[in-house]
Design a protein around this nucleic acid. Structure first.
Lengths: 128, 128
DNA sequence: CAGCTATTTCAAACTAATATGAAATGCGTA
DNA sequence: TACGCATTTCATATTAGTTTGAAATAGCTG
């Protein structure tokens, strides 16, 4: 009766674990069980960083921009012409890419020139 | 008046292009202008593929799973215990990872064992 | 300064992704 | 066959991301 549901979620309840397939069981013990697994993982913060950069690359418009800037630095109006989207939309995507460090920008008079960063290059080279 | 808005979006309107910064202009001409740029880009289909794989990696839960499976194959119940999320949620994420080819699965009696694929390994090694 | 252009910002509308819990499926065992 | 367990499926709720067009900024040029 101690194990009856009590409204709140139980944190460390004996889950399945009456038995698990042999192949897994063996390796799992070697590695130190669930705790052993968890110790070998990147930190939560790191996991979030990694997923964040992938998120920045998860939109076709942004990949398009990335490959454009891998060719040469460009001002917004040229990117806009290449891709054929509204300025405000482009600005939105450029901002995401800038925040995640894939590109940076520099003002030149009336124009703003975007260039790919080293980090951005790394991802542009990955699949091309 | 021919250039007045007429409800539908104009496709090839003379955009900015009265002038652009010299540094860009020069390189841009070298490369064959906007058309030259566009020729060097991956196809639309490829761009979509690339963004799709990044999308599959854009959630912390999935990155967590990826790194777990990089250590060893695991059945769902162990993954569930490591991460501490509801089964249905886990199933949802596993499915996305499977569809994008990062992991695959094999049934063993009552259990389903997930393993990382070669493609998955590639991304797990990338940052770790 | 006034007017022009390039770019960004903003709020609202729209769309896509994720979370949740209950029910379904499927295998193994009694 | 009936039951128990691991996993998935489904419908719905919730949240996050994207698009849109209008307005705001900011640098030039005259």
């Amino acid at each position: 009766m101690a194990t009856k549901r009590q409204g709140t979620k139980l944190k460390k309840e004996p889950m399945c674990r009456t038995e698990i397939p042999g192949i897994i069981q063996f390796d799992l013990e070697e590695v130190g069980g669930v705790n052993g697994l968890n110790k070998r993982l990147p930190s939560k913060k790191n996991i979030e960083k990694i997923s964040a950069i992938h998120h920045a690359l998860s939109d076709p418009v942004r990949i398009h921009i990335l490959y454009l800037l891998a060719i040469q630095p460009l001002c917004v109006c040229v990117i806009k012409e290449c891709i054929g989207i509204a300025g405000s939309k482009l600005s939105y995507h450029l901002n995401i890419m800038k925040e995640s460090g894939l590109v940076d920008s520099e003002q030149q008079g009336n124009w703003i020139i975007y260039r790919i960063t080293e980090k951005g290059k790394k991802y542009a080279e990955e699949t091309a």
